[in-house]
Amino acid sequence: MAQKDLLSIDEHNKYIYYQVVQQPGLTADTFQNRTAYFLKINYPKNKVNKSEATESITGTGKLLMLTGISAAKHIDGEVRYFFNIEYKDQKYRYWLTDFVFTPYYVDRYGNSVPQPGIDIPLENGAAKLEKGQLNNYSIQISNYSKQFGDKLKQYMLMVSAAPIKSDKKKVITTKDW
C-alpha cells in the first residue's frame, strides 16, 4: 500500500520518519541492548556511530530504489539516510532523516553502480527528479521506514534478545506404527 504520507517535515525542513513508542516496564539499558542487537541482525551493513552516550544510537544506512515488475526489477539508484534511536525508562523514540538519492548506471560489466558526484536530497527531488519518480521513491522510503520501526518494536518487545531456536523436527519412523 502506498504510504508516502508517513514522511513529515522537521524543524530543519527535512523529510523525517519520526515515532515515539511508550513501553512501560522497560529501562533505557534494556532498550539500548535490544537496539544494538536489532541493528546487528537486521541491518548489518548500516554504519553505527561510535559514541560514549548511552541514551542513543545513531548511524547511517542505505536502501535501493527499485522499479519494474515483481519478477525482475530495475535498480534506479540508492537512498542514503541517517537514523537516530533514543531511549529513556519506559519509552523510546527514533527517526530516519537526511534522505539523499544517488542514481545508478549500468557499467560495462552489467553492474549497477552509483553515478559519482550526483547526490539529490529528497527535499530537492521536485527540482531534480520527475514527479512519478519522486512519488515512487517517497513511497519506497516510507515503506522502508515503517518496516524499520516495526522490526525495532518487535525486538524491543523480545523477552530475550537472542533468537529463539526452533525445536528439532520430529523424526518419523515408518517401522513402528
Binding site: L64, G68, K73, H74, S112
Partner: peptide
Amino acid sequence: ADAPLVLY
C-alpha cells in the same frame, strides 16, 4: 546482497 533478479 539483497538485490533481486535485476533486468536491464
